[in-house]
Simulated scan of single mutants.
Amino acid sequence: MSRRRPTMKDVAEHANVSVSTVSYVLNDSGPVAQERRNRVLDAIRLLDYSPNQSARSLKRRSASTVAMVVPDLTNQFFALVTEGVQRAASSLDVLVVLIVPDGTEAAEEKQAKLLRSQRVDGVIYLSGTGSMPASIYDLARSGPVVLVDEQIPGRDLPAVICDSRRGAREVATYVLDQGHRRLAVVGGPPALWTAQQRLAGYREAFAWAGIDPDSVPVYPGDYREESGAAAADTLLALPEAERPTALLCANDLMAIGAIERLTGHGLSVPRDISVAGFDDLPVSRMLTPKLTSVRQPAHEMGYRAAMALFRLIDGESETVDEQLPVTIQIRESVRPPR
């Protein structure tokens, strides 16, 4: 039996760096500290790794094009994912066609039909609705499609995701550990896998703390600031003695909208109410107070999704499903209740 050829992932694991760092070193396409570069080069020599030659042929293919479907570039998280895709594509001289529907199923279907008429080698798909247009699924029958940050029920497609459930569980546990027992959640779009996973993680933390998850109100949200503000309006309408002392928001934009509305009505965050988010957008570290959040490696997700797509285009059969870890960023927006 022939020995399995070492992959870029093997090199990354041996050197204790990310796959993107290995690619930066191989393609000289990004800044890498000298100590990390040396570790990568040592791993390449030790494992006798050689870049996939057919992947190299992608770099020489002048007309190679892939599509990136992203629901909204005003959301920094989506923009960072897209940057990761672009970084991977540029390292192989692959053109990225950016498709930005308005987040509705009708718009996604319209853009998908347009995409079918173009000649692209593959598609990276970030759903804004929790579903996949039939036209995109038709594309998947004839060419590779990789999902990023979502999984779509009934669609057996490769995906690069983060452990949203664990992240939500851990940030909720942190808030509970501060002594909060009157809580509320601002959920994401119910059809989205990420929103379902985050709500499940919150509910697990409540149950483990002895709180009936069904007793915790879940305000509807759509991952936009306006829905966070609307949730804050609902909270403000409650008698002060019944208001939650902590608000868990399924993404940072909704947390920002909630904080702006709460402080605009004279409440102090976190003195009167603690607020936590999810995604750890760059803007979240610039707020007053700085936002406690769950960090997702958005750029890395985009990069890995693109590299997974290129491997599929290249005909490699290795599994490309990946789940990346998340980390809790503890900052100033959560404190013990008064």
Rank of each mutant, 00 (worst) to 15 (best):
G154D: 06
P270Q: 10
D28A: 14
S62P: 07
V275P: 00
N251H: 05
G143F: 03
D177R: 14
D222F: 03
V69Q: 06
D72Y: 00
D233G: 05
N75M: 03
R165F: 01
W208G: 04
G188V: 08
Y202N: 09
Y174W: 09
R224C: 02
K59G: 14
V94K: 02
R311F: 00
S2H: 05
A241T: 11
D314M: 10
I124T: 05
S215P: 00
V17C: 12
K9V: 12
G277D: 01
A134V: 04
R36L: 15
D10W: 07
V32H: 06
D280H: 10
G143T: 11
A12C: 03
T129Y: 02
L248C: 08
V97Q: 12
A134W: 04
T129H: 03
K9W: 07
G130C: 11
M68D: 00
A106M: 08
A205D: 05
L192A: 13
I161W: 01
A298P: 00
R56I: 03
S142H: 12
G315K: 09
A276F: 02
R141D: 04
R39P: 00
E225Q: 14
L46W: 09
V145M: 08
P31S: 08
V145N: 05
A306M: 13
I161F: 01
R61K: 14
V40A: 14
T173A: 14
L147M: 11
V146F: 07
H14F: 07
A106R: 15
S164F: 13
